[in-house]
C-alpha cells in the first residue's frame, strides 16, 4: 500500500509549491493541514508515513507539533520545511526528532536529495 504524506503549512502557495516539488518517484497519497492543530488531528486519526512541516504557523507552530509527536511517540518521519533558518532553530527541531531541515523556498532538487538520503524515494 502506498504511503500517505502530510503537508502542513498555513500558506496555500507553500502547500502547492511543496506538492509540485515532490519528486515524481515519490509514490504517496497527499493530505494537507493548514496549522499545527490540524496536523495533529490528521496524525492522530490516520496512518501518516511522512510529514512536511512548516514552523511558523498560527494556532500551533511546527515546534509544538514536533513536541506532540515526541510526547505521543508517533511513528512518523518529519521533514521540516521552514523560512526560519537560524542555526539554533535547526538544532532545536533536530533535537526534537525531525529527520531533516529544508530551507524555503522548497524545490525538487532539495527535496530529492533529502528523500533519497532517507530511502523515501
Amino acid at each position: 500500500m502506498a504511503l500517505t504524506a502530510l503537508i502542513c503549512d498555513d500558506s496555500l502557495l507553500a502547500r502547492n509549491q511543496m506538492k509540485k516539488s515532490l519528486p515524481g518517484a515519490f509514490d504517496a497519497e497527499i493530505v494537507t493541514a493548514t496549522n499545527g492543530l490540524e496536523a495533529l488531528n490528521v496524525l492522530r486519526s490516520q496512518e501518516i508515513g511522512v510529514v512536511f512541516l512548516d514552523l511558523t504557523m498560527p494556532e500551533l507552530d511546527g515546534v509544538g507539533v514536533l513536541e506532540a509527536i515526541k510526547a505521543e511517540k508517533m511513528d512518523v518521519f518529519v521533514i521540516v520545511v521552514s523560512a526560519d533558518i537560524q542555526p539554533e532553530m535547526q538544532k532545536r527541531v533536530m533535537d526534537l526528532g525531525a529527520l531533516a531541515f529544508i530551507h524555503k523556498p522548497v524545490n525538487t532538487d532539495k527535496l530529492s536529495a533529502v528523500m533519497r538520503q532517507y530511502g523515501l524515494i
Binding site: 500558506s11 511558523t56 504557523m57 537560524q86 539554533e88 524555503k104
Partner: peptide, 25 residues
C-alpha cells in the same frame, strides 16, 4: 514570499547580535 524574506533577515539579525530571534507570522 514575505515570510521567507523575513526568515533571511531574522537569521542575519540573529547572527549579527549572536542571539536567537523568535519569528512570528
Amino acid at each position: 514570499l514575505i515570510n521567507v524574506a523575513m526568515g533571511l533577515a531574522s537569521d542575519k539579525l540573529a547572527r549579527f547580535l549572536n542571539t536567537f530571534v523568535h519569528l512570528q507570522v
